[in-house]
Amino acid sequence: LTKLNVVQTKYTVSDATTPEPKAQSYNNFYEFGEDKSDPAKNAWKMHDRPWTVKIEGLVKQPQTLDIDKLLSYRPLEQRVYRFRCVEAWSMVIPWDGYPLSELIKFVNPLPSAKYVQFLTAKDSKTMVLPFGIQFPYSEALRMDEAMHPLTLLTFGSYGETLANQQGAPIRVIVPWKYGFKGAKSIVTIRFLDKQPHTTWNDMNSEEYGFYSNVNPNRSHPRWSQARERLLNSNSILPKIRTTDMFNGYSEVASLYNGMDLMKNY
């Protein structure tokens, strides 16, 4: 992992930060195996250089961007965000990147673009690709969600480039949504006028909605989302914390004015 030049920002939560080894050994990255310890074991095979990101769909000028160009396009901010997994555990992680909106403005989508879709790399030579899941992994945001200043185009964590198992070399972090909404190891960013298919929503729409905003009132069918295990200390006893609406990022509430969030989960 290479050290990154990062600038501090106001986006910092007060909770203690999760120890770096925990954040890098406990990952849902199904391309590298089903168990949360699998990605840390298997992801070393992936090469994060050379790497390009295709910008396509409803944009003035479809193009392919080199990762190092993307990385140096804007100063990298360090933002300490709460990270809430749909599985009812959470971490506090310093992510390094710049707002996704900066890239979107740069690539200039057409006014008809309403959604942004992210596709993850798929390579059977370096990945495990368990057969129960359709790859490439697809996630998407509504355009206003993608443009929100909290949505971070992420290149690093803890002041270093992302570990492969965290989604190197480029991923998205959307702190008010469950973690799986933040696509990892992105190779394609596509602008669309309709809501695209997204991997977990396709697999089980009852459990994983398109929005997947952190919502303590809407239970996952198999467990409550009202509380979470905060994994930011070295103790075997769980640190139980009540889950906040939008993971505590209440400034995004206006994006969903007039929407029934129990139905649009």
Partner: peptide, 13 residues
């Protein structure tokens, strides 16, 4: 202390 160093000891147990 290896158990406490597990990312999510509860899940592990």
């Amino acid at each position: 202390g290896a158990l406490a160093n597990q990312a999510d000891p509860v899940n592990y147990i």
